[in-house]
Design a protein around this nucleic acid. Structure first.
Lengths: 194, 194, 194, 194
DNA sequence: CATGAATGAGCATTCATTCAT
DNA sequence: AATGAATGAATGCTCATTCAT
């Protein structure tokens, strides 16, 4: 039960994204997702524990590599400053790459119950760790202010990026999100710079 | 019908805040709110059109003056810097003043997807206008960078403050939120300062 | 409790007729009737046992004299034939005289629960007695068929007149009901005549 | 959705007839019908759109062929007189055949005020067309009075038959309804005969 | 593996009636 | 006598989940 692979597993996740994006979180019934995926309602439960598990898995599958991708790209970079720029750019780039997914993660899934949202936060824990590393590196290099509060700095980065993306989604993704990377990066850098 | 005053009106709103904060948005049935308020289910409908109207009224009563209060406090202040500090402090102060309410507005009410979200956005719009004014004033005074993007700056301020408060709520409000005002204020100022 | 007089008693009955005729039986709430009557909801219960009592009383007050009026008019008449004509004409005349009332008694009150309709039938018992008398008189005079089944004959008279009036009401009372008295009378007479 | 066949479909309709006949229209809750049918509440909605759809379907299934059956039986008959007799007999016969159903159609379903009444009227319209044909045929054959008013004649036939059946139902169906066919037929014939 | 018919718990709202004033 | 605020029982429908096939 709950086997996390097979072609149907992915079909169902893709269907969930599509259904939630086009009908909204509260109109995304299991039967609608099943129909979109081209499987029977009961089949869903061969691949997922319950409805919430679909949403969590969706988030894991789609956003699980989110941080890894950022990490890969910054690994070889040298300056903290550039690492930060890569982080912001990649964050925006990935969300801009799949607008359906952006709608689902920025708007719809936030209407889910508080428990699900706590789980989503767990997935973001890696993001926070990455930020922590960059901040620490910056401090040690004397590039960032030594007395910077790491928690608040992390919240500023995540809060800012998230709000920028959310506003972009609410404006129907109709302008270029990536163009905001540089100015946002500059603001954040100034906030932290020694 | 729908008389917007009387002691019962307030009792019901207080009961709604308490019930939503302790049981969550999706477990806040009308009958539970009525019981908490010490009235009959039907009595709710002498004061509110429907369940959504309770939530909208709750938000209006509790958050309607949020921006006005900030605005009053900064009116006499002189420097842009101090205005900003007042804004951050008052924002945190008001939400810290009623932790039940903070849970409701930061976490629970965001699960709604109806007219209520429009109301929430309306309240936020005034906040954005206020931020716009401060940013413009700062630029004209040569205190803020002239080429600052107002939209992104606004999103940074709101995104940061909101994320800081939300994290505080998710940590069960168990540390002093107001203590974060000064460091957050400093980070934001640095981000914008010429 | 339940005093069957006073100006308010009549006000309430008139209000009930008006409200039911214009809003329909299922939209005729006690509070709406009270408002139309210009009294408080509670006042209704000083004059009527309950809501059903309003409707029964309405029927009694408005239709109670229905048969008496017919009876008065035919008392002095001579031939059975003429008595019958008077009956048909008066039946139509009285319902045509108050179209609101006709709507209420022919259409709306029939949507009431079965119990109320049984009570309405009781009120019509006098009508049946009158018909019985006329039929018997006609038989004894050798004018009506001796082997006529009184029950069926009564049902034919009442069923026919009721159906004619109901159709007239459903056609918005827009033709002259009284014009049908003579042809209906002729058909009925032929049905019974020896 | 709303599949109009299968054994459960019929079970539910039969259950609805039984529940309405024994508890009355206003006490025929969906849950009571489901219980009587031996299915879960939700199962009802696999076969019917909503509660009203149960009633409409009930009426269609049970009364939809009412007029057709009469029409079939009179097709081969010769005289207008006999056609009329068949009509009266079949009308009574069909309703006497299922007393539960008679209670439902003569008393309970008339308390509805929605689409159902439109459906009932549609069924009756066919009845009226049939009556029209017979009356016209009778006139052309010189058997019925040439100056008979068709509308009034139709109302007399339908009003009489309906009233006779309703009285029989209100007397708990405890006498033989079919026995009334002949005398009723004779009365109607005399009313129309040239 | 896959199906999809069947399940049944859960809930906002109305309105006839009461009773303290 | 009159008020009208307060009561609270009562119900159609949805949809996540199960399980016999």
């Amino acid at each position: 039960m709950g086997k996390k692979k097979g072609p149907k597993y992915n079909q169902i996740i893709e269907a969930a994204v599509k259904v939630i994006a086009s009908h909204g979180y509260h109109q995304a019934q299991v039967s609608k997702i099943a129909k979109e995926a081209g499987v029977a309602d009961g089949t869903i439960y061969l691949y997922f524990e319950n409805k919430e598990d679909i949403l969590i898995s969706l988030f894991e599958e789609k956003m699980g590599h989110f941080v890894e991708i950022i990490r890969e790209r910054i690994s070889a970079e040298l300056s903290v400053e550039d690492k930060f720029l890569i982080l912001v750019k990649t964050h925006f780039e990935q969300l801009q790459a799949d607008k359906y997914l952006a709608i689902v993660t920025q708007l719809e899934l936030r209407q889910s119950n508080t428990e699900l949202r706590l789980m989503i936060n767990k997935i973001f824990k890696n993001y926070l760790l990455l930020l922590e590393e960059i901040l620490t590196e910056g401090k040690e290099a004397g590039y960032f202010l030594a007395d910077l509060d790491n928690r608040l700095a992390r919240q500023m980065v995540f809060g800012t990026l998230d709000e920028v993306v959310t506003n972009w989604v609410m404006k129907d993704c109709k302008y270029d999100l990536l163009a905001s990377a540089e100015p946002v990066h500059n603001m954040l850098l100034r906030a932290f710079r020694a």
